[in-house]
Nucleic acid binder design. Structure first.
Lengths: 221, 221
DNA sequence: GGGGTGGTTGACATAGTGTAAAGTTACCGA
DNA sequence: TCGGTAACTTTACACTATGTCAACCACCCC
């Protein structure tokens, strides 16, 4: 059902791909982000107005508020250059460098997506439709944490009390927007201070303590 | 202005103090908590119905949704026995015991207030009236973190890179409901695992490393 | 010229918050 | 015993938001 509502954005994207006039869908997404970034309560009508389009046009492109929210989140990821921003972490060849790169990434990325996540999290309480994309994003973040834990483990740097699983979850949790939000937004920390503290905490908490090269600590698990 | 709306709950409280029949205000607060704990979207009408009272009666006791939310939060604090639950932390006489007590407290307390905080945080996005009580609670939590950092510092256990200020903020942030929520609710950690990890991580991140082996890590700031 | 596409306006159903007003009950004090 | 009043009820209303529907318009392409 609802065939018309589905074909509309598809066609819009096709037109855009062929270089057609203006992509209203993208205008709506950008407007959504702009309105969101004002940080105040808003309505769909406001977003439509900001996009210079009627409120109804919004429903030609998005089935619901949640669908728009998802699109905005995706847009932010893309315009941020997520893949590129992750490059330093991927390129790291030792534990300290990896954690440092990750902390820097988290500080930058969370700042960028903060408003979107904030809204999505609030929406999640009242809008069941939001639950699925939210879980998806969490799964992604979790996977990111696990990759880091996996590397630390492979390098023999993960402290004994951690499994790769649980260390990955811990990295994921410490990388969450909510932690960033509380420290930077609510408590007034600078971006640098946040990144430095996160890096330190991750290193102190995850890494095997440096042993004085006495006996063989490599075999105790 | 709005004199009548203000006297109503006052009188109700007076009646309750004199041992009068039923305190509708408290019934509403309890109902609010019960509805909240179902974890689903809800309306004020639902809460009133749950309390066995008309929706309008709610406005005789609370000026707005936000006011009710604040009352529910207060009620949860009281019924949880916040003061009592903090006793172990206050009684701690060394750093490890303090962090352990705090981690246990956080695990228990956050579990209890989770639903309320969740809602309040969501409300905060759309309801400016919520901002003030939210900031108050944050200030309280922050103060709690600072007390801990202060003690660690007084005992000479706080690692060099921290100031009391920033360490306190860090404790506050790591003690936030959001971290608990992500690990326990979203990632499925057990309460014990959370408490243990938080304790360990606080210790690893905040405490001065024990062995002053070689030069290395003491000067890396 | 005709058809489809993407947009418009306007109306509508539904649901929630908050305000207002009038009626009911029950207690309390002179 | 009577009157007043606090607490609550019912009913109605204003306002805002989401989402649906229908009719109409304009453009582009065949």
């Amino acid at each position: 059902m609802s065939e018309r509502r589905k074909t509309a954005p598809t066609r819009a994207r096709e037109r855009a791909a062929r270089g057609a006039k203006v992509d209203t869908r993208e205008r709506l997404v950008r407007a959504g982000l702009a309105v969101l970034e004002r940080g105040e309560p808003f309505s769909l009508g406001e977003i439509a107005r900001e996009a210079g389009v009627s409120r109804q046009a919004l429903y030609l492109h998005f089935e619901s508020r949640a669908a728009l929210a998802v699109a905005v989140a995706q847009f932010v990821d893309e315009s941020f250059g997520l893949e590129e921003a992750l490059a330093p972490s991927r390129a790291a060849t030792d534990a300290r460098a990896l954690l440092r790169a990750h902390a820097r990434f988290v500080a930058k990325y969370n700042e960028r997506i903060q408003t979107v996540v904030r809204m999505a999290d609030a929406l999640r309480q009242t809008d069941a439709e939001m639950a699925v994309p939210w879980k998806d994003r969490l799964a992604n973040r979790r996977a990111g944490g696990h990759i880091i834990a996996q590397k630390l483990s492979a390098w023999g740097e993960l402290a004994d009390e951690w499994t790769v699983e649980s260390a990955g979850d811990w990295v994921c949790a410490l990388s969450s927007v909510k932690l960033w939000e509380e420290l930077v937004l609510d408590l007034g920390w600078s971006r640098e201070r946040f990144a430095r503290s996160l890096e330190r905490q991750l290193a102190a908490g995850l890494l095997r303590p440096k042993e004085p090269l006495a006996s063989g600590p490599a075999t105790n698990r």
